[in-house]
Simulated assay, not measured.
Amino acid sequence: MIDRLLAELPQLMVDETVKAALLEDWGRAGDITSQATLPKHARARAVIAARKPGVLAGLGFAESACRQTDAALSFLPLKQDGERLAPNDQVARIEGPARALLSAERVALNFLGHLSGIATATSRFADQIAHTKAKIVCTRKTTPGLRAFEKYAVKCGGGANHRFGLDDAILIKDNHIAVAGGVSKAIDAARAFAGHLVKIEVEVDTLDQLREALQAGPDVVMLDNMSPETLQRAVEIAAGKVILEASGGIELDTVKAVAEAGVDLISSGWITHSSPVLDLGLDIEIA
């Protein structure tokens, strides 16, 4: 599982994003603090370690930050993305030119902390529903420019991915329905438009809308802001005819009841847009 996750992000995508972050951090003159205080030929070694428990994601970004800063920096991973971390667990060891090491530190930790935070939040939701068939999925509520990476972190945490953009699936929301003139009309129009490989999902707010949607035959129905009791009734009405996704304000203390209602998917924007950073630090030793 971990090897599969590591293979999903093309290195070029990682390197280009990390490069932009390094250039942003270095500004016009580079790391003037390290240049001012450290001898040019000074060397150092360091370890990246977890300060709090969580799930690791983004190790390749830290490695890229070190490699692109100075090829003379050696980066030895001690864990893999998707692994659970306990406090003080060592994630990686770095050794080489001290100036380069410190110039790469913040970018490396920013990516590691952010992506590991998403993986950790996802894992906590996934753990709550592990006894059910439901899966936690992310949304398009992501940081601009980081969507692919944040969705990767979701998978590291045991979740699954919803659509990546507006072009890879049709998702008919309440505003589409309002303009189109109804659930059935919107689904029929989408079916006439879509190619044979394009999935169609429709959002419904009531059980009556669900019944109307089932007549039109979408691939997935999103049940928006429904109580666990209403979700359970929706599962009974759908009777396995479509994939059912629960959405809307689902939190860690409510996700178990939602999953136990029998839905297939539970979508959460919170895991990508509001998950706290996982605290990881870099501790340095003179080589």
Rank of each mutant, 00 (worst) to 15 (best):
M226H: 09
V242Q: 11
S103Y: 08
A169H: 02
A21D: 07
D253Q: 15
Q80H: 04
R147C: 01
K199S: 12
H41L: 13
R211L: 07
V204M: 00
D283Q: 06
D205A: 07
E229D: 15
T139M: 15
D127H: 01
G158H: 02
P97V: 11
A148M: 12
A71W: 04
A98Y: 01
T132P: 05
V18C: 11
I271R: 01
D174T: 05
V198S: 08
E63V: 14
E95S: 13
K19P: 02
F149T: 12
V221H: 10
L101K: 06
K241E: 15
K173N: 05
L265F: 08
Q215R: 12
R67L: 01
A46W: 00
A29G: 15
D70C: 01
A121R: 12
I118E: 07
I136Q: 08
E83W: 03
R93D: 10
K199D: 06
Q232M: 10
V55H: 00
S274E: 13
L78V: 10
K133E: 14
G195N: 05
T230H: 10
F164S: 13
K185F: 06
Q11S: 15
G58M: 02
E212R: 09
I48H: 07
G58I: 03
A92K: 11
R124H: 08
L282C: 13
H114Y: 05
T37G: 08
L78R: 14
D283K: 14
P276I: 05
P87L: 03
V14P: 03
D3C: 15
T33Y: 05
G249R: 07
R43L: 09
R45N: 12
D127E: 06
E203N: 09
F125N: 03
A192S: 12
L22M: 07
K135E: 10
V258I: 14
H196W: 06
L112C: 08
L223G: 03
T272N: 09
A36L: 10
G82R: 11
I48S: 06
L231V: 12
Q80L: 06
K141G: 07
S247C: 14
T37L: 15
G181A: 11
A238L: 06
R51T: 11
T143I: 13
K19W: 09
Q232T: 14
M226K: 11
A234M: 13
I286R: 12
K256Y: 01
M226I: 09
P53C: 00
G60M: 02
D127K: 07
T142N: 00
P228M: 03
T120D: 06
R106F: 06
I284C: 03
A57P: 01
I243W: 10
D174I: 08
P87Y: 02
I187H: 07
F111T: 13
D188T: 00
K199H: 12
F61M: 04
